[in-house]
Amino acid sequence: MFKDRNDAGNQLATLLAKYKDDEVIVLAIPRGGLPIGASVATFLNAPLDVVLTKKIGHPNNKEYAIGAVSLESIILSNSNILDNNYIERETERIRRTLKERHEQYYKNRSPKKLQNKTVIIVDDGIATGNTLLATIALVHKQRPSKIVVAIPVAPPSAIYKISNLEKVEEVICILQPNNFRAVGQFYKNFEEVTDQKAIQILDSFNSKKVSEI
């Protein structure tokens, strides 16, 4: 059980100490991943950025991810989905949302370049892992030298899926409970992180890093 996301981030950070000598970029998944990412990036003295992707839900169950969309790419994790019209409609709808988020998160700057970097993807927890699988594939297209996934909590089945990806160097997960029902179950304080709060964390972190240069 974690006190809050900051506590979870601090615990994860110590497990990532061996990457301090790498050229690291910490990529947080908005919105709950931002407090985690800030703790990890502070410990590693690394840049912090976000990965703006959004899942494509199954037409019969929107919570079940069949792929993910970024502004530039689309990855489908389920080849049995043959309704191209549905995929096209969902991709267009999701990209409108992502464009709005991009404008919010990148008002005065550009996304970090990931090529030849050690990219550590962080979130506050994962359930099925399907969305993260697609997100990893999208990140991999930018040719980082390593992809590391660091999360406080996930069910063993999700960790198994991600650990078997050749694209992933290492998966670090503190809690892997069999009785997993929801991510918030393992936090004493699991208040919602709004877009406004997430952007504030990101801007504050990057402003501090600039002032240190």
Rank of each mutant, 00 (worst) to 15 (best):
I199V: 15
V183R: 05
K18Y: 03
N108D: 15
M1D: 12
Q142V: 10
F190P: 00
C173V: 09
F2L: 08
P47K: 01
L44T: 02
E92G: 05
S39G: 11
A134P: 00
N6Y: 12
T97R: 06
G125F: 09
L34C: 02
P155S: 12
N85G: 09
A13I: 09
S39A: 15
I213S: 14
F180M: 07
R96H: 08
I87N: 02
H58P: 01
E212C: 02
T91Y: 00
S73K: 11
E170C: 06
A182N: 08
V122Q: 07
Q104Y: 09
Q185V: 00
S39N: 13
L12F: 08
F2R: 03
K107H: 11
V183T: 08
D124K: 00
P156E: 11
L34N: 01
A17T: 15
Q11G: 03
I147L: 09
A154F: 10
Y19K: 11
T128A: 03
T53R: 00
A28Q: 03
K209P: 04
K208N: 12
A158W: 03
A46C: 10
D21S: 13
Q176E: 14
V149E: 02
L132T: 02
L34D: 00
I147H: 05
G57I: 07
V69P: 01
G32E: 06
S70N: 09
A68L: 12
N78H: 09
R96N: 13
L12R: 06
E169H: 13
A46I: 10
N116R: 03
Q11L: 15
P144V: 08
E88I: 12
I201L: 10
L165Q: 14
Q142T: 11
E191T: 13
F205Q: 02
I66K: 08
D22G: 03
K55H: 05
D123H: 08
Q200P: 01
K54A: 09
Y64M: 15
A28R: 10
S77E: 10
S211W: 02
N164Q: 14
I36D: 01
F205W: 03
I121A: 05
Y187P: 05
I172F: 02
S204N: 14
G184F: 01
T118E: 03
N60C: 07
N189D: 12
I74Q: 15
D195M: 08
Y160H: 11
G184M: 08
K167G: 00
R89T: 13
L76N: 09
R143E: 14
I75R: 11
S110P: 00
D123P: 00
P156S: 10
N108F: 13
A46R: 07
K3A: 14
T128L: 02
P35T: 05
N85A: 09
N6D: 12
K99A: 09
A28K: 04
R95H: 10
I66G: 13
V148A: 05
V122K: 05
L52M: 01
E103F: 07
L98E: 04
I25K: 04
Y187H: 03
E92K: 15
R95L: 04
V193G: 01
G67H: 06
V139G: 02
K62Y: 12
E88L: 14
R31Y: 04
V168K: 11
R181T: 15
A182H: 07
A46G: 07
E169Q: 13
Q142M: 13
N80L: 06
G125T: 07
L133N: 12
R109C: 06
D21M: 06
K113D: 11
I81R: 01
A154Q: 06
F180E: 12
